[in-house]
Every structure is written in C-alpha cells, then in structure tokens.
Computed example of a mutant assay.
Amino acid sequence: MYLAFKDLANVFADKRGANEPNLVFYSVTDQAKIKQPKGIFILLNDESGELSDAIANGAIAAVWDKKVKLPPYTPSQFPVFFTEDTIEAVRNLLQYYLEKLDGEIEKKMDITKFDFLNKELLNKNEQTYDIAAMLKKVAREIDNIRRERRG
C-alpha cells in the first residue's frame, strides 16, 4: 500500500498546488539527485540538493520548510506540503505510514520506499542509522501508545 496524497494532507495542514487525493507516491527521499519516480522530495538542509533536480529525477511533490523560500521556478500545480520542522515531519510521516500499514495482511504488497541519506537526520537518531531499524522503533512506540490507551 503506497503513501497517498490524502495521507500527506492528513499529516500536513499547510499545502499548496494541485489537490490530487488519489495520487500515490512510490518513494520519499532527502536526496534531489537520485531517481525518485513518483517521489516526494524533502529538503532537510543544503546537502539535500535543489528542488529542480528532484523534479527532474521524478519527484511529484515536496515537503518544505516554511522558513525556506520556495524556488520561483516551482510549478504552480506541484504539490508542496509545508512544515515548521522537516526532521520532525519525517518522523511524523513515518509514524503515520506505519499506522496505515498496521493490520495489512497481504504477504506481498507494494510499499513506499523511504530513502534518507542526510547526516543531520541520521545524527539525531541515537540508536541506529538504519531506516528499517527506525521503522521498527517507531512501530514499537506506536504499540506502546496503543496499549496505554487501552488501559
């Protein structure tokens, strides 16, 4: 199950561009220069690259820091989701996606690929640099929260 436009709209209240509820995303990355067909580009810092490169490599949406001016060449229909803290946005998006996948029972399904190489993001993760391990950690945290809610 792919991450969809409507999922991002649930995570990020502030957005601009086309409203395409059925649009799905195959990847999420912080690296503009890698191929990302039907991808979401997240500008984490200067190491991430330029939005123009991300679009040229297949990005069809972006998560953008409100404090950073959006380049004037950004297409008016290009979906951009704004956030105050891009690193926290990545965590929230991962957590939302894990909750979306929770309970899926298909042994083989298409999922959105999360690919982060940014040192700033990795350094804020005290446990590991492995995104799969981060996903497992978030999943455990979600399970703990659910157990606490049940009482």
Results as ranks from 00 to 15, higher is better:
M1K: 14
M1T: 07
Y2I: 06
L3S: 01
F5S: 03
F5G: 05
L8A: 01
L8C: 04
L8T: 03
A9R: 06
N10T: 05
V11Q: 06
F12Y: 11
F12W: 12
A13W: 08
G17E: 04
G17W: 02
N19D: 14
E20A: 13
P21T: 05
P21R: 06
P21Y: 11
L23S: 03
L23G: 02
L23R: 06
V24R: 13
F25H: 01
S27T: 07
S27Y: 08
T29R: 04
T29N: 04
D30R: 00
D30Q: 01
A32S: 02
I34F: 04
I34P: 06
Q36Y: 03
Q36D: 06
Q36H: 13
P37E: 13
P37W: 05
G39F: 09
F41M: 01
I42P: 03
I42L: 08
L43Y: 15
L43T: 08
E47F: 12
E47K: 15
S48V: 04
G49K: 10
E50D: 13
E50I: 08
L51V: 04
S52A: 15
S52K: 15
A54K: 01
A54I: 02
A54D: 01
I55A: 01
I55Q: 02
A59T: 01
A62L: 05
A62F: 02
V63W: 08
W64H: 07
W64V: 05
D65Q: 14
K67T: 11
V68D: 04
K69V: 06
P72W: 09
Y73A: 10
Y73V: 06
P75H: 05
S76M: 11
S76W: 09
S76A: 15
Q77Y: 09
P79L: 04
P79S: 07
F81W: 08
T83V: 08
E84R: 15
D85S: 11
D85Q: 11
A89N: 07
V90R: 03
N92V: 01
E99M: 11
E99W: 06
E99T: 03
E99L: 08
K100L: 11
K100H: 09
K100Y: 12
G103D: 00
I105S: 15
E106C: 01
E106W: 10
E106F: 14
E106K: 14
K108M: 13
D110T: 11
I111L: 10
I111Y: 12
T112P: 01
K113C: 08
F114A: 04
D115T: 03
F116L: 00
L117V: 03
E120R: 13
E120V: 02
E120K: 11
L121M: 10
L121V: 08
N123I: 00
K124F: 00
N125L: 07
N125H: 07
N125E: 09
E126S: 11
Q127T: 11
D130H: 00
I131M: 05
I131P: 01
A132V: 06
L135V: 07
L135T: 05
K136P: 02
V138Q: 02
V138H: 10
A139Y: 12
R140A: 13
E141Q: 14
I142W: 05
D143K: 14
D143W: 10
D143H: 08
N144G: 10
N144M: 15
I145W: 13
R146C: 10
R146Y: 12
R147C: 10
R147K: 15
R149C: 09
R149Y: 12
G151K: 12
G151H: 09
